[in-house]
Amino acid sequence: MPDIDIATPIRPAPALPLRARLAPLLMPHRLVMAGLALTALAAIVTQMDWSWLPGYLPKIGHGLLVTLALLVSSVAAGFALALPLGAVQVTGPAPLRWLANGFCTVIRGTPLLLQLWLIYYGLGALFAQFPEIRASWLWPYLRQAWPYGFLTLTLSFAAYQGEVMRGAFAGVPRGELEAARAFGMPRLMVFRRVWFPRAVHRALPTLAGEIILQLKATPLVATITVTDLYAVITRVRQATYLTYEPLLLLIAIYLCLSGTLTLALRWLEGRVPSGR
């Protein structure tokens, strides 16, 4: 009976007394590791040069916002694109299926940096040749770099997530859809009430990983002059002649971001009704 998967009930971890919870952390080798980590942290704070940090905080904050804005908007728009991309590959008419499949294959098979430059230099130059576009209200935006960064990141996320959604749509057991049809649901309702929510549930566990990959792809936009977090840190390094300190800060910020994302999505997943 491949149609039925028996999900294990999600139980909240039993609340252990504090001592019992700390016990695994107090094993000798772990204590040694923790000691080393603390020493390293102390050395980083006291031995290195952080005097530049307060002055650059506003710029770093702005860079962080740009990175987050690019991440959130490209994930949201990319996900919205991934839904039809995935669905069409499972049920669409043949030409649409090929188109979606081709799109995903091409984007996933070529370097993101290349796509970014092609879109930025290619599309940017193309737009500039049309007086209609130059005269339109869009032009002030199209002259900047970030729309091209956003577009490229969106297409990339759509292609990867589209592939995930294809698998998720295809993996919804036929019987559940058949039951919906047997009760007289119109096709669109079957999609809206059963097929779509079930596919999203199935895709959710991999979503966290995909978003973190996307986060790590965002620094590429610095190569087309978008001043994201990475670009700001690069400027700090050029201005202060410091090699390591700004990079350490950058690592710490990216780690915090991906950690928060992982936790947030795990929380979300736990709240979604089980039954996978």
Binding site: D3, I4, G175, E176, A179, V194, R198, G275
Partner: peptide
């Protein structure tokens, strides 16, 4: 219709 494999909507 009642199916052999129940076919409830698990979500």
């Amino acid at each position: 219709m009642v199916f052999q494999n129940f076919n409830l909507w698990p979500h």
